[in-house]
Computed example of a mutant assay.
Amino acid sequence: MNVLTVVSHPRKDSLTFKVAERFAQGLADAGHEYELLDLHESGFDPVLKGIDEPDWTVAEQPFSPEVEAEIKRLKKHDALAFIYPIWWWHLPAMLKGYIDRVFNNGFAYGSSHLHHQHVLWLGLAGVSKEQMKKRDYDEKMTHLLNVGIADYCGISNSKVEFLYETLDSKPEHYERLLDQAYRFGLNYGKDELIATQ
């Protein structure tokens, strides 16, 4: 598969980017091709402006050059991965804005749907697994991403995974998280993504 891996974090030296690199290494070792898209470095503007507002009265509509370029990029890949920190129990604004603008009417939903076979949502959580489950944050985020976005846009093979306690900077813990990321890449597209807990 050819996997577009979208990374959302303002710092290149962040754990998010280290995770993305190890995930990409796993993809490569499994024989997949990939492209890493750094939303911050690319200068992507997450703010939805009038030209990109969905027009429900038409089957297809023209978009801004920036959105058209991202649609063209998405069409070159047959699978997706999103790697991001979890902020306020949600996607970062940059990534949410990317989806708002690019996963648009007539391309991702409406008269047409995304053609991608798989999508992986890999969120980095500062909290523990128990804290995430305490108020069902994990289930709510999983439902939103798998059903509210992926399924709505035609991707039935959608998987949400979390890396926990990312604020614990002990080297051995970081290495476990990076090993999980590698395994997610290595097992990408398989029925069950295998990670070491």
Rank of each mutant, 00 (worst) to 15 (best):
D78L: 09
V102L: 02
E60D: 08
Q131T: 10
S128M: 00
H40Q: 14
H116R: 09
L74Y: 03
V119K: 06
G97R: 03
D55E: 07
G126V: 12
H116E: 11
G26T: 04
L120V: 15
G123Y: 06
K134V: 12
L120K: 06
L74E: 00
P54F: 02
R73M: 05
I86K: 11
L120H: 13
P62V: 06
Y109M: 04
G110Y: 00
W88H: 13
D38S: 09
I83N: 06
V119S: 05
H32L: 10
E35D: 14
L91P: 07
Q131C: 08
H77R: 06
G126F: 11
Q131N: 11
Y109A: 05
K75D: 12
P92T: 10
D29V: 06
F107K: 00
H40G: 06
L122D: 08
G43C: 04
V67W: 02
D38W: 07
Y109F: 14
D38I: 09
S111N: 01
A30Q: 03
Y84F: 15
H40Y: 15
E66M: 09
P46M: 04
Y84E: 01
H118M: 07
P46K: 00
A69N: 09
L95H: 06
L48Y: 00
R135M: 14
D52T: 01
T57D: 13
R135P: 01
D45P: 02
K134A: 15
L124N: 10
L39S: 10
A125H: 09
Q117C: 03
F107D: 03
R101Y: 04
D136H: 15
E68R: 05
L36I: 15
G123F: 05
V127H: 10
G26E: 01
M132A: 14
F103D: 04
D78N: 15
E68V: 03
G110N: 00
H113D: 02
D52C: 00
Y34K: 10
P65S: 03
F63R: 08
E130Q: 13
A30I: 05
A79N: 15
E33D: 14
F63A: 02
H90R: 14
K133G: 10
P46S: 00
L91I: 07
Q117F: 03
W121N: 06
L95Q: 07
D136Y: 14
D52F: 06
G31K: 07
L95T: 07
E70H: 15
E33Y: 08
K129A: 14
K134C: 11
K76T: 14
D38E: 12
I86S: 11
G110V: 02
S64H: 00
N104G: 10
G43I: 08
E68A: 12
